[in-house]
Protein backbone atom coordinates (compact mmCIF):
# COMPACT_ATOMS: atom_id res chain seq x y z
CA UNK A 1 0.00 0.00 0.00
CA UNK A 2 1.19 3.51 -0.79
CA UNK A 3 -0.15 6.49 1.13
CA UNK A 4 0.23 10.05 -0.07
CA UNK A 5 -0.06 12.83 2.49
CA UNK A 6 -0.50 16.49 1.57
CA UNK A 7 1.93 16.23 -1.36
CA UNK A 8 3.05 19.48 -2.97
CA UNK A 9 5.43 20.06 -5.84
CA UNK A 10 6.17 23.06 -8.02
CA UNK A 11 8.65 24.21 -10.62
CA UNK A 12 10.07 27.74 -10.87
CA UNK A 13 7.59 29.00 -8.31
CA UNK A 14 4.58 27.53 -10.12
CA UNK A 15 2.63 24.89 -8.16
CA UNK A 16 2.00 21.67 -10.09
CA UNK A 17 0.72 19.42 -7.30
CA UNK A 18 -1.27 21.07 -4.51
CA UNK A 19 -1.88 19.16 -1.30
CA UNK A 20 -2.59 15.67 -2.64
CA UNK A 21 -3.90 12.98 -0.30
CA UNK A 22 -4.45 9.50 -1.66
CA UNK A 23 -4.12 5.81 -0.85
CA UNK A 24 -3.13 3.21 -3.40
CA UNK A 25 -4.36 -0.21 -2.38
CA UNK A 26 -2.50 -3.52 -2.59
CA UNK A 27 -3.94 -6.10 -4.99
CA UNK A 28 -5.95 -3.50 -6.91
CA UNK A 29 -5.33 -1.53 -10.07
CA UNK A 30 -5.12 2.05 -8.84
CA UNK A 31 -5.45 4.69 -11.51
CA UNK A 32 -4.48 8.34 -11.66
CA UNK A 33 -6.50 10.01 -14.38
CA UNK A 34 -6.74 13.55 -15.67
CA UNK A 35 -6.21 15.70 -18.71
CA UNK A 36 -2.78 16.50 -20.11
CA UNK A 37 -0.97 18.99 -17.87
CA UNK A 38 -2.97 18.07 -14.78
CA UNK A 39 0.18 16.87 -12.97
CA UNK A 40 -0.20 13.08 -13.35
CA UNK A 41 3.37 12.43 -14.50
CA UNK A 42 4.85 14.74 -11.85
CA UNK A 43 2.79 12.87 -9.25
CA UNK A 44 4.13 9.54 -10.49
CA UNK A 45 7.73 10.80 -10.62
CA UNK A 46 7.40 12.01 -7.02
CA UNK A 47 6.19 8.54 -5.99
CA UNK A 48 9.13 6.96 -7.79
CA UNK A 49 11.55 9.30 -6.07
CA UNK A 50 12.64 10.87 -9.37
CA UNK A 51 11.33 14.25 -8.18
CA UNK A 52 11.65 15.45 -4.59
CA UNK A 53 8.36 16.92 -3.33
CA UNK A 54 8.34 20.42 -1.84
CA UNK A 55 6.28 19.19 1.11
CA UNK A 56 4.10 16.31 2.21
CA UNK A 57 4.95 12.64 2.43
CA UNK A 58 4.93 9.42 0.38
CA UNK A 59 4.63 6.34 2.56
CA UNK A 60 5.44 2.83 1.34
CA UNK A 61 4.01 0.23 3.75
CA UNK A 62 4.41 2.62 6.69
CA UNK A 63 7.87 3.84 5.69
CA UNK A 64 8.38 7.39 4.46
CA UNK A 65 10.17 7.61 1.11
CA UNK A 66 11.45 11.06 1.96
CA UNK A 67 13.09 9.92 5.18
CA UNK A 68 14.77 6.88 3.64
CA UNK A 69 18.55 6.84 3.26
CA UNK A 70 20.09 6.34 -0.19
CA UNK A 71 20.66 2.60 0.40
CA UNK A 72 17.14 1.93 1.63
CA UNK A 73 15.72 3.95 -1.26
CA UNK A 74 17.85 1.94 -3.67
CA UNK A 75 16.55 -1.30 -2.11
CA UNK A 76 12.97 -0.06 -2.33
CA UNK A 77 13.47 0.66 -6.01
CA UNK A 78 14.48 -2.95 -6.54
CA UNK A 79 10.94 -3.79 -5.40
CA UNK A 80 9.44 -1.46 -8.02
CA UNK A 81 8.59 -2.22 -11.62
CA UNK A 82 7.92 0.57 -14.04
CA UNK A 83 6.28 0.52 -17.43
CA UNK A 84 7.19 3.77 -19.17
CA UNK A 85 4.95 5.51 -21.67
CA UNK A 86 7.21 4.65 -24.61
CA UNK A 87 8.57 1.43 -23.14
CA UNK A 88 12.06 2.80 -22.38
CA UNK A 89 13.59 -0.48 -23.51
CA UNK A 90 17.38 -0.41 -23.74
CA UNK A 91 17.93 -0.14 -27.46
CA UNK A 92 21.45 -1.58 -27.32
CA UNK A 93 20.03 -4.86 -25.96
CA UNK A 94 17.84 -7.55 -27.47
CA UNK A 95 14.32 -8.23 -26.17
CA UNK A 96 15.62 -11.15 -24.12
CA UNK A 97 18.50 -9.12 -22.66
CA UNK A 98 16.06 -6.35 -21.72
CA UNK A 99 13.87 -8.77 -19.76
CA UNK A 100 16.87 -10.46 -18.16
CA UNK A 101 18.43 -7.11 -17.17
CA UNK A 102 16.82 -6.71 -13.70
CA UNK A 103 17.38 -10.42 -13.03
CA UNK A 104 21.04 -10.05 -13.91
CA UNK A 105 21.45 -6.95 -11.77
CA UNK A 106 19.60 -8.05 -8.65
CA UNK A 107 19.40 -11.83 -8.49
CA UNK A 108 21.85 -14.70 -8.33
CA UNK A 109 20.14 -16.54 -11.19
CA UNK A 110 22.49 -18.12 -13.69
CA UNK A 111 22.13 -17.51 -17.42
CA UNK A 112 20.01 -20.64 -18.00
CA UNK A 113 17.56 -19.67 -15.26
CA UNK A 114 17.36 -16.13 -16.59
CA UNK A 115 16.60 -17.35 -20.10
CA UNK A 116 13.90 -19.67 -18.72
CA UNK A 117 12.32 -16.78 -16.82
CA UNK A 118 12.49 -14.54 -19.88
CA UNK A 119 10.86 -17.24 -22.05
CA UNK A 120 8.16 -17.74 -19.43
CA UNK A 121 7.40 -14.01 -19.33
CA UNK A 122 7.40 -13.67 -23.11
CA UNK A 123 4.97 -16.56 -23.34
CA UNK A 124 2.80 -14.88 -20.72
CA UNK A 125 2.82 -11.71 -22.81
CA UNK A 126 1.89 -13.79 -25.85
CA UNK A 127 5.16 -12.93 -27.55
CA UNK A 128 7.25 -15.65 -29.08
CA UNK A 129 10.12 -15.70 -31.59
CA UNK A 130 11.22 -12.16 -30.82
CA UNK A 131 13.82 -13.04 -28.16
CA UNK A 132 16.78 -11.97 -30.26
CA UNK A 133 15.22 -8.94 -31.88
CA UNK A 134 16.20 -5.40 -30.95
CA UNK A 135 13.42 -3.09 -29.64
CA UNK A 136 13.57 -1.08 -32.89
CA UNK A 137 12.65 -4.23 -34.84
CA UNK A 138 9.33 -4.86 -33.06
CA UNK A 139 6.00 -3.00 -33.06
CA UNK A 140 4.87 -0.45 -30.45
CA UNK A 141 2.43 -2.92 -28.89
CA UNK A 142 5.13 -5.58 -28.67
CA UNK A 143 7.52 -3.05 -27.12
CA UNK A 144 4.93 -2.24 -24.44
CA UNK A 145 4.47 -5.92 -23.64
CA UNK A 146 8.24 -6.50 -23.50
CA UNK A 147 8.53 -3.47 -21.19
CA UNK A 148 5.79 -4.93 -19.00
CA UNK A 149 7.64 -8.26 -18.93
CA UNK A 150 10.81 -6.43 -17.85
CA UNK A 151 8.88 -4.50 -15.21
CA UNK A 152 7.55 -7.66 -13.57
CA UNK A 153 10.58 -9.90 -14.17
CA UNK A 154 11.91 -9.37 -10.68
CA UNK A 155 8.52 -9.92 -8.98
CA UNK A 156 8.07 -6.31 -7.83
CA UNK A 157 5.86 -5.34 -4.91
CA UNK A 158 4.88 -2.12 -6.68
CA UNK A 159 4.08 -1.73 -10.37
CA UNK A 160 3.86 1.72 -11.94
CA UNK A 161 2.57 2.25 -15.46
CA UNK A 162 2.73 5.57 -17.29
CA UNK A 163 0.00 5.60 -19.95
CA UNK A 164 0.46 1.92 -20.77
CA UNK A 165 -1.76 1.93 -23.82
CA UNK A 166 -1.08 5.30 -25.40
CA UNK A 167 -0.52 4.99 -29.13
CA UNK A 168 -1.90 1.47 -29.28
CA UNK A 169 -4.90 0.14 -31.17
CA UNK A 170 -7.95 -0.65 -28.99
CA UNK A 171 -7.42 -4.42 -29.17
CA UNK A 172 -3.76 -4.28 -28.09
CA UNK A 173 -4.65 -1.69 -25.44
CA UNK A 174 -7.21 -4.08 -23.95
CA UNK A 175 -4.64 -6.91 -23.98
CA UNK A 176 -2.16 -4.71 -22.05
CA UNK A 177 -4.86 -3.57 -19.58
CA UNK A 178 -5.94 -7.13 -18.90
CA UNK A 179 -2.36 -8.31 -18.45
CA UNK A 180 -1.69 -5.57 -15.90
CA UNK A 181 -4.90 -6.40 -14.02
CA UNK A 182 -4.19 -10.15 -14.01
CA UNK A 183 -0.65 -9.63 -12.74
CA UNK A 184 -1.87 -7.26 -10.01
CA UNK A 185 -4.45 -9.70 -8.68
CA UNK A 186 -2.33 -12.81 -9.13
CA UNK A 187 0.72 -11.41 -7.32
CA UNK A 188 -1.17 -9.17 -4.91
CA UNK A 189 0.95 -6.13 -5.77
CA UNK A 190 0.21 -2.41 -5.58
CA UNK A 191 -0.28 -1.16 -9.12
CA UNK A 192 -0.54 2.51 -9.99
CA UNK A 193 -1.48 3.42 -13.55
CA UNK A 194 -1.50 6.84 -15.12
CA UNK A 195 -4.01 7.13 -17.90
CA UNK A 196 -6.42 9.40 -19.68
CA UNK A 197 -7.91 6.55 -21.65
CA UNK A 198 -11.51 6.10 -20.46
CA UNK A 199 -11.72 2.59 -21.91
CA UNK A 200 -8.87 1.57 -19.63
CA UNK A 201 -10.48 3.28 -16.69
CA UNK A 202 -13.75 1.43 -17.23
CA UNK A 203 -11.96 -1.86 -17.86
CA UNK A 204 -9.62 -2.05 -14.87
CA UNK A 205 -9.93 1.10 -12.71
CA UNK A 206 -10.66 -0.27 -9.25
CA UNK A 207 -9.44 2.74 -7.29
CA UNK A 208 -9.43 5.97 -9.27
CA UNK A 209 -7.92 9.33 -8.40
CA UNK A 210 -8.92 12.18 -10.71
CA UNK A 211 -6.44 15.05 -10.91
CA UNK A 212 -7.40 18.48 -12.14
CA UNK A 213 -4.94 21.39 -12.13
CA UNK A 214 -2.77 19.64 -9.54
CA UNK A 215 -5.62 18.95 -7.13
CA UNK A 216 -7.51 15.70 -6.51
CA UNK A 217 -10.96 16.60 -7.79
CA UNK A 218 -12.58 13.18 -7.35
CA UNK A 219 -11.89 9.68 -6.00
CA UNK A 220 -13.84 6.49 -6.53
CA UNK A 221 -14.17 3.28 -8.55
CA UNK A 222 -15.07 2.62 -12.17
CA UNK A 223 -18.56 1.64 -11.00
CA UNK A 224 -19.06 4.97 -9.28
CA UNK A 225 -17.75 7.13 -12.10
CA UNK A 226 -21.07 7.23 -14.00
CA UNK A 227 -23.14 7.75 -10.86
CA UNK A 228 -21.28 10.75 -9.52
CA UNK A 229 -22.54 14.29 -9.95
CA UNK A 230 -19.02 15.73 -9.55
CA UNK A 231 -18.84 18.20 -12.41
CA UNK A 232 -15.06 17.96 -12.92
CA UNK A 233 -15.08 14.20 -13.49
CA UNK A 234 -18.27 14.16 -15.57
CA UNK A 235 -16.85 16.87 -17.85
CA UNK A 236 -13.71 14.79 -18.25
CA UNK A 237 -15.55 11.51 -18.90
CA UNK A 238 -18.09 12.96 -21.31
CA UNK A 239 -15.50 14.87 -23.30
CA UNK A 240 -15.21 11.52 -25.08
CA UNK A 241 -17.74 11.30 -27.95
CA UNK A 242 -18.24 7.61 -27.30
CA UNK A 243 -19.18 8.06 -23.66
CA UNK A 244 -21.36 11.06 -24.48
CA UNK A 245 -23.29 8.99 -26.99
CA UNK A 246 -23.62 6.12 -24.50
CA UNK A 247 -25.07 8.54 -21.95
CA UNK A 248 -27.45 10.01 -24.54
CA UNK A 249 -28.57 6.50 -25.46
CA UNK A 250 -29.07 5.65 -21.78
CA UNK A 251 -31.10 8.85 -21.27
CA UNK A 252 -33.28 7.92 -24.21
CA UNK A 253 -33.80 4.49 -22.68
CA UNK A 254 -32.06 2.68 -25.54
Amino acid sequence: MITIKNLEKGFNGEAVLRGLDATFIKGKTNMIIGSSGSGKSVFLKCMLGLFEPDSGDIIYEGESLLEMGAKRKSNLRKEMGMLFQHGALFDSMTVEENIMFPLRMFTRMNRKERIERSDELLERMNLTHINNKKPSEISGGQQKRVALARAIANNPKYLFCDEPNSGLDPKTATVIDNLIHEITVERNITTVIISHDMNSVMEIGENIVFLKDGVIAWKGTNQEIFKTDNKAITNFVYSSNLFRKVREAQNQGL
Binding site: L48, L50, K73, S74, N75, L76, R77, K78, M80, M82, F84, Q85, H86, A88, L89, F90, D91, F101, P102, M105, F106, F160
Partner: peptide
Amino acid sequence: GSMRVTEQIDALEVMGI
Protein backbone atom coordinates in the same frame (compact mmCIF):
# COMPACT_ATOMS: atom_id res chain seq x y z
CA GLY B 1 21.37 12.00 -24.62
CA SER B 2 19.20 9.56 -26.59
CA MET B 3 18.87 7.42 -23.48
CA ARG B 4 17.75 10.51 -21.55
CA VAL B 5 15.16 11.46 -24.18
CA THR B 6 13.73 7.95 -24.39
CA GLU B 7 13.52 7.60 -20.57
CA GLN B 8 16.09 4.79 -20.50
CA ILE B 9 18.06 6.69 -17.84
CA ASP B 10 14.87 7.07 -15.76
CA ALA B 11 14.33 3.33 -16.19
CA LEU B 12 17.79 2.63 -14.75
CA GLU B 13 17.15 4.98 -11.85
CA VAL B 14 13.74 3.47 -11.06
CA MET B 15 15.36 0.03 -10.99
CA GLY B 16 17.70 1.27 -8.23
CA ILE B 17 20.76 1.45 -10.48
